[in-house]
Nucleic acid binder design. Sequence first.
RNA 1: UGGGGAAUAGUAUAAUGGUAGUACAGCGGACUCUGACUCCGUAGGUCGAGGUUCGAAUCCUCGUUCCCCAGCCA
Length: 565
Amino acid sequence: MNDKSDPAAPEEIRDYIRDIIRDDLAAGRRDVIVTRFPPEPNGYLHIGHAKSVCLNFGIGIEFGGRCHMRFDDTNPVKEEHEYIDAIQEDVRWLGFDWGEHLYFASDHFERLYQWAEHLINSGDAYIDDLSPDEIREHRGTLTEPGKNSPYRERPIEENLDLFRRMRAGEFPNGARVLRAKVDMASGNMNMRDPVIYRILHANHPRTGDAWCIYPTYDFAHGQSDAIEGVTHSICTLEFEDHRPLYDWLIAHLPVDMVPLQYEFSRLNLTYTVLSKRRLIQLVQENHVRGWDDPRLPTLRGLRRRGIPAAAIRDFVSRLAISKSDGTVEIALLEHCVRELLNKTAERRMAVLKPLKVVIENWPEGETDELEAINNPNDESAGTRRINFSGEIFIERDDFMEEPAKKFFRLAPGREVRLRYAYFITCREVIKNDAGEVIELRCTYDPESRGGQSPDGRKVKGTLHWASAADSVAAEVRLYNHLFNSENPGAEDDVLNDLNPDSLQVLENCLIEPSLASATPGEAIQFERQGYFCLDADSTPERPVFNRTISLRDDWARIQKQKQKS
RNA sequence: UGGGGAAUAGUAUAAUGGUAGUACAGCGGACUCUGACUCCGUAGGUCGAGGUUCGAAUCCUCGUUCCCCAGCCA
């Protein structure tokens, strides 16, 4: 098997990070390759994280090394246990396994504390009594150097004493911090004596109230890497100017091995947002129905929408690992979803906006049983039987009283094929008082059973349909891009870019009876319309389907072109 | 001259001094019991100006544009 969506595929992938790894291996600088996926448990994973997950776990697999799952849980004020569980569930769903290598930065708190004392003892860190505001003032600006804190030259013994008393809980939040003594004049802000420990009297999801001081990201991440033996610590571009500090800290600590940091550009996608802040806002302000809303780019949202993990892996595999930062068109993701689902999804018929059709010459009370193919791309999927009789429904959009140019579906006097059934001809249009078409009177050709006429007569259109006697009523939810603009919020408030039609609920759909017992998450193609899956909101009485993605639609494209011209 | 990064078709990228290639998107057509799928065809690019070289996307110089950094967030 050499399917590129298989996470264990041996195919050689090339990018600048993997090139470095191959070099490191060839030069003997590393024997085993160890990466890590380091989420902070303060939110749900989205497709941008999937890029990092696939990169890190992918590298672990490809080079016969391993990838650790590590939670960067150094800020108890923001983190919650709920996210720790959800993140693991999402990564597993994506198809990756860390075996026994589950770590938490909080596992290393005691060692980190000892290392902080080590820094104090070597004169490389000091306790600063300045307030947060004063620290900011001393930091200088982007163009002006900072000023040394008056506490910078505090004696080692005093620093040690104060640090121990910080740990013991003698001081309130914000009273003092531990800072690395680097260089207040550095052009790199991260080197201007960064805070590495702060007082936070807060309950930690894992360590409870064991600690009231916590290391900052900069004093936890690289250190955890070193403790766990991570060789290649891969992160996104915004950490690029933390790298000098990462290296400085490692160089000043008694570590057993030296991890190295590499950066790549994070994923941006058109017509959506991938920032934690904005995702939270959408959920909290109820612009969507929750973290698993199928319109959201969260992994839970994509899953509920019916997008298979394999399609996400395939999509991610087509992204470049580079340092130039850009925006990928959502059309690429959509392509990956369609390509996969076209191969795997069974076909069924469902009428979303029903229009009644009475076959006038159908023999009274008779039912015909027809055979339909389940998946033209997979013979082993077999066939099924569907009932046909004198009253059916077709899609409203498949009828035009005055057919437009190039419209080759049903119209007065016109003959079309009903898929897997018969040719019918529209004889009469029935309207209500408001002038709306409410019913069509048609005749069928008994010779065309199965969808072919023995005289070789051709029809232009083939319509899907639902039998009035057998169909089951269902709700169908159609999704469109959550935002109207490619780059939401670029010009204006993001919320002004929200697409009011991102969710369209159709209450009166008719589906084949067998669909009522579909498995949640199983992808099904509604013929001529798109890929759908059963939603968790379904009940036995009322199935609810999500549209994962529509089929490509040339007719819609033609109409759009006409609108423009 | 605060520091750090990035610039190749519409988008994302490949080419590591030697024919600018691929994917998605677009356009045109064939096929079709899904206006799907598939197939065929087609258009379109090296940020700019100099320089080195037989030869430059690649090397050099000078510009330009964009992104990140002044949390006791990660």
